[in-house]
Amino acid sequence: MSAVQQKARVLLHEAMAKNTFRLRLDGVELATTITPGQFFMVKIPGENDPLLGRPFALFDICKDAEGRVAGLEFGYVVVGKMTGRLAQLQAGDEVEIWGPLGNGFPASPGGRLVFVAGGIGQTPFLALAREALGVQSYPQQNPRKVVQPSSVTLCYGARNAEFLAGVEDFKSVPGLKVELATDDGSEGHRGYVTQLLEEHLKAPGEPVTIYACGPEPMLKAVQKLALSYNATCWLSLETPMACGFGACFSCVAKIRETTPAGEESWDYRRTCVEGPVFEARELIFENHP
């Protein structure tokens, strides 16, 4: 995979949920090479504040009426300087993007797939679901191999119903089961999304592969469940990042490793290059022991 740095125009900018928006860009070159769970950096050209690009995961690529790749979409929640600036963008405005970056989620290995999303961590799962269910292939340029799963379920949690974003997009994927959870019960299950996950892990059937993206406490809870049920589990991290392509060494996560002498140890690995997706059993969460 080779990344590109390119200017891209805003094709569409619309609300998805409370404080949550989707931006569609005409970054065709990038769109043809990206896979689900990969990300790209977005910067406002020529502006010094915000200075750095910010990483955004692919929501999905888009095609024109003839089926040609026309652009790509990402979702964001307005939380800070950059997302506040993004919220001002209108169709036709130009941004700078570079990517695709990171390893992304592995393609479906078959069996039961359970996606666990918290908040805006839902972003990578539309493309992943479409791929697993045979709707779309990635990268467009040279599609990767996918083993047909026996079932695909998205367990998606948010604070309340107002923050659930893109639910209609998910429900439109043929064969994708969508299970929702909210903290206040305003939509779906009242409680944690990990409680939905545990029901799948308890149920008999083919092996479960977990893919998760969301806030760190959620990922840590998913990790714990995956380890106790001995399920393969992929966690996608979001860490503060300056470049996105491995040069700055900002975005490190603690990863278990075994020394040549056979001792248990750890080292920092870059989320942008060696991640953002790591296997649950190799990750050490620092902030939420």
Binding site: P50, P240, A242, C248, F249, S250, C251, V252, A253
Partner: peptide, 11 residues
């Protein structure tokens, strides 16, 4: 970590 934080026109 965190190892970087953006400040006004700076890192």
């Amino acid at each position: 970590p965190p190892r970087t934080v953006e400040t006004t026109a700076g890192l």
